[in-house]
Simulated assay, not measured.
Amino acid sequence: MKRRTLLLAALLLPAVAHAHPGHADAGLASGFMHPFSGLDHVVAMLAVGVWAARNAGMTRWLVPAAFLAGMVAGGVLGLGGFLPSFLESAVTASAFAAALLVLLAVRLPLGLQASVAAAFAIWHGIAHGAELPAAAAPLDFAVGFIAATGVLLALGLALGRMLQRGERDRWLGAGLTALAASLFWA
């Protein structure tokens, strides 16, 4: 149990609260490391994975897949120059909302659940697509970022499955919600 607690703490306490300061080296490795560099990403992706773990069988993978699709769509929008002034607030709000869904054990029809996850992901994707420097390798960064996002979503699924006994996944939801709420003041 101590190893799991240490792993969770290491994942939930990155040095930077928001992962959108820019991407000086936007290659494959930078793209892969980026989602781990900010609480906004870690909280959102873990929460979506934990939330999806409540689904049965193979359907539990539909929600993370929708999140990944939303991330790609948002990245395309961001690369195209779409950058709303409220973007950081939307990213933070999506992380907070995803954590609340876990905390409150919200059950939605699978299609709606996937749509909500994709909507959350679009904001994260826009932020990254818009911030890539012109000289960077956006495809390499995107491949790395999507791969790391998949890892965090899968970790959330694994945590959700592991903690579903009793109400322990709701305790994780409480912790993720508190972390996400703290991002509004970071």
Rank of each mutant, 00 (worst) to 15 (best):
E88D: 13
A135L: 09
I146K: 04
L77A: 14
A121I: 03
P138E: 09
L68R: 06
F67A: 14
A9D: 06
A99D: 01
I122C: 09
I126W: 07
L176E: 01
M45C: 03
V42R: 00
A147H: 02
T92I: 15
L12H: 02
E131F: 06
G49T: 07
Q164F: 09
A142R: 08
P84Q: 02
A17R: 07
L39I: 12
A19K: 03
A69M: 06
F145Y: 15
V42T: 12
R168N: 11
G80R: 08
G78P: 10
L12E: 12
G150K: 11
P109W: 07
A98G: 08
A158K: 05
Q113T: 09
F96V: 05
A180L: 07
A121N: 07
G144S: 10
H41I: 05
R168G: 10
V102R: 09
V102S: 06
A105N: 15
L157E: 04
S182Q: 11
G160K: 08
A47Q: 04
A15Y: 03
H20W: 14
L62C: 14
T149W: 01
V72T: 08
L163C: 08
A147S: 08
A56T: 10
H41T: 05
V43F: 00
A186K: 10
G70L: 02
T5P: 00
A137H: 15
A130N: 07
M1R: 14
R165S: 13
A147E: 07
V151C: 11
L110N: 06
S85H: 12
H128R: 06
R60L: 11
A47M: 01
G31N: 10
L46A: 07
A95H: 08
G70T: 08
I122Q: 04
P84E: 10
G173D: 03
T177C: 11
A181F: 07
A98C: 08
H128L: 01
A95V: 05
A154M: 06
V48S: 02
L104V: 01
T5A: 14
G111D: 05
P35C: 03
T59P: 01
M58I: 02
A114Y: 02
L155C: 14
F82K: 00
A10G: 14
